[in-house]
């Protein structure tokens, strides 16, 4: 993926929000990431450490909240959580084309002071 670019966007978002809050320091960034976003959290963390240097987020903790994939099975008329990236219903083996969650890639919250 392109985690350096994504982390640049995330950090810009965080610094803007912190400034609006009148914060002097960012202690923690919490991101929500679904497996279908295609983002590798470890690569984000690497980029985070490099990009935060010299900013009010230097030394902050990056917390990644993993969001599960949720699919809807039109045969069973119910949601299910696949265990891999192939959205096959564990009840009837039907492959779901309807993904209801798991694409998330967002900055959820900041801990500031």
């Amino acid at each position: 993926m392109h985690e350096v670019g994504l982390m640049k966007n995330t950090l810009a978002m965080a610094l803007k929000r912190a400034a609006e809050e009148g914060a002097h320091r960012i202690h923690r960034l919490t991101m929500r990431i679904g497996p279908l976003s295609g983002v590798v959290p470890e690569a984000l963390e690497f980029a985070f450490d490099v990009l935060t240097r010299g900013t009010i987020a230097e030394g902050a903790t990056l917390e990644v909240e993993q969001v599960p994939i949720i699919c809807y099975c039109s045969q069973c008329r119910g949601d299910f959580q696949p265990t891999d990236l192939f959205c096959e219903c564990p009840r009837c083996r039907h492959v779901s084309g309807e993904v209801r969650g798991g694409r998330e890639l967002e900055l959820a919250s900041l801990e500031v002071s």
Partner: peptide
């Protein structure tokens, strides 16, 4: 970090990257 320790608060953002 400790200087502002007392002031620590969580700010919701919920913005897609």
């Amino acid at each position: 970090g400790d200087l502002h320790e007392d002031n620590r608060r969580t700010v919701p953002v919920h913005q897609a990257i």
